[in-house]
């Protein structure tokens, strides 16, 4: 048990604070929703009803999609783009998809390489891009979910004000959908750009997200 916790410290810790904050979001979200209901002489809803409603899921999915887009783009962009001096970048001479030797593929696999890395053909092609593929799939699915749940919330608001409801294809062209989307994207892109450039001149001793404290500012791609 102690070994399980130590071996999975990062995924356990972040999984735990994810659940705690999701519960916090549900409680405060339900409270906010019921406050709105009271202002409009509507009936309050239970917490259980709220967490199974489109209002809650539109908010959750809106944030998920931007986070997964952030990582998807970062994984893709760092294949081709470098940032001199950054620990978040690879070295300038390794731009691109790299050689089989650098990626330990073909004749360069080792006995304990993953099976699909050794398999060759389509399986190695799929496995070679599996992180980007899965992150992209989660991004697309959560963005789709945001648009579907967001439309329900939007239409409920429209009905409240005796306005016409919209179809899904129409909803994805509305300012509401794009405002919800872009307000999340902008913060993700700034955070990524900041991390790339701040890690050139700033350090955190002990973190692999930083260069070693004594590493020169010009040194690119050296985890601490």
């Amino acid at each position: 048990m102690a070994r399980f916790v130590r071996d999975n410290g990062l995924s356990l810790a972040f999984g735990a604070i994810f659940l705690a904050t999701l519960i916090g979001q549900a409680i405060s979200g339900a409270d906010t929703f019921n406050h709105g209901q009271a202002l409009h002489n509507g009936d309050p809803i239970s917490l259980g009803h709220y967490v199974t409603s489109a209002v809650f899921w539109a908010d959750v999915m809106e944030n998920w999609q931007s986070e997964y887009l952030q990582f998807t783009l970062y994984i893709f962009a760092t294949i081709w783009l470098i940032q001199k001096g950054s620990n978040e970048s690879k070295k300038p001479d390794r731009v691109g998809r790299e050689s089989d030797e650098q990626q330990r593929l073909g004749t360069h696999t080792q006995p304990d390489s993953p099976r699909w890395a050794k398999a060759g053909g389509w399986r190695t092609t799929v496995f070679s891009n599996s992180l980007l593929l899965v992150m992209t799939a989660i991004w697309i699915a959560s963005w789709l979910a945001q648009s579907l749940a967001g439309r329900i919330v939007y239409n409920a608001e429209q009905l409240d004000h005796q306005a016409a409801t919209v179809s899904w294809p129409t909803y994805v062209t509305t300012a509401d959908f794009w405002n919800r989307t872009l307000q999340n994207w902008q913060s993700e892109f700034l955070a990524i750009g900041s991390m790339a450039i701040l890690s050139v001149f700033l350090r955190q001793r002990g973190s692999p997200e930083s260069k070693p404290v004594g590493a020169p500012h010009a040194e690119t791609a050296s985890s601490g």
């Binding site: 070994r3 999975n8 995924s11 899921w57 998920w64 979910a145 648009s147 579907l148 749940a149 329900i152």
Partner: peptide
């Protein structure tokens, strides 16, 4: 590595379940 693989499966299962729920809810609820 067995426990790490288990964590991987827990994360994937949680994410897929949440996405599936949200998409189905978005399609069915009117």
């Amino acid at each position: 590595m067995r426990s790490v693989r288990m964590m991987f499966m827990v994360y994937i299962a949680l994410i897929v379940a949440a996405l599936a729920y949200a998409i189905v809810l978005g399609i069915l609820e009117h």
